[in-house]
Amino acid sequence: MFTAVPLNLPSYPAKISKKADQYYIFDALRKKHLLLTPEEWVRQHWVNHLHQHYHYPLSLMHIEGGLKLNSLQKRHDLVVYNRLGQGILLAEFKAPTVKITENTFHQIANYNSQYKIPLLLVSNGIEHYYCRIDFEKGDFTFLSELPSFG
């Protein structure tokens, strides 16, 4: 039986289904049911939260796109684009039981070395970190709140 792990995010009416002893969650972006893993639980809550609370359009969100990093194929968790097609938010999600560590920040920083996106989000559904990158100064600033779209 699926037991919803309480997150430090607003709940939403997730569409959960069961098939052959496996649970699935409906992904509004890809319009299909995905295997319900703890990380997917966090990601789907964030997609909903970004859309409902921060007004990021679902049509500008992209999940699990590929990138090549030091000849290794990697996948980002979520990129949000502006209406000009430029990446404005890069997110890395972990399962609620996974502690956010320096390695998590290294991971998203490595991905962002390819993307050059000014706003980063790291979350395990319990702890959330937001960071603005200043590429000209080669610096970053942690934010107390994520900016709304636009």
Results as ranks from 00 to 15, higher is better:
H33R: 05
D134A: 03
N48T: 09
R132T: 06
K68V: 15
I63K: 04
I100C: 08
G66L: 02
H106D: 14
G66N: 11
S11V: 09
A28V: 15
Y130H: 04
N110I: 00
F26P: 10
F2P: 05
D77Q: 01
L58Y: 12
G65V: 03
L58A: 04
V42I: 05
Q44E: 06
L143T: 02
S148E: 12
P147A: 02
C131R: 14
G85M: 03
A109T: 11
P57W: 01
Y56E: 01
A14T: 07
I63P: 10
K99Q: 13
K31L: 15
V5S: 13
F2I: 13
M61L: 07
D77M: 03
H76P: 08
M1N: 07
H55D: 12
K31M: 14
H76M: 13
F140Y: 15
V80C: 13
Y24D: 05
E127W: 00
V5E: 14
E145T: 13
H62P: 00
S59P: 01
K32W: 09
N70W: 11
E64P: 05
E39H: 12
E102M: 08
A20R: 13
L143H: 04
R83N: 15
I108E: 10
N8Q: 13
M61N: 00
M1Q: 11
H49I: 01
L90I: 10
T104Y: 08
K32M: 15
L50F: 12
M1L: 10
K74Q: 14
K94N: 13
N103D: 14
N110K: 06
S11N: 12
S17A: 14
D21G: 02
V5P: 04
F93G: 05
E127M: 02
I108T: 10
T141F: 06
H55Y: 01
V80E: 02
L7Y: 08
L89C: 08
S11P: 04
P57C: 02
L7T: 09
I108G: 08
D139H: 08
I100V: 14
V80H: 03
H49C: 09
R132I: 09
A109L: 11
V79H: 02
I25Y: 04
Q114N: 09
N70D: 15
H45A: 11
H51Y: 12
Q107V: 10
G138I: 04
P96M: 03
K94A: 09
S71C: 07
L121T: 04
D139E: 12
Y24G: 02
V98T: 13
S17Y: 00
L69I: 07
L143C: 08
L58V: 02
Q22S: 10
I117G: 02
D77T: 00
H51R: 00
K116C: 07
T37L: 11
H106T: 13
S11W: 01
L67I: 12
Y23E: 13
Y130C: 06
H53L: 02
V79Q: 06
P10H: 07
L120T: 03
A20V: 11
K18L: 14
T104A: 15
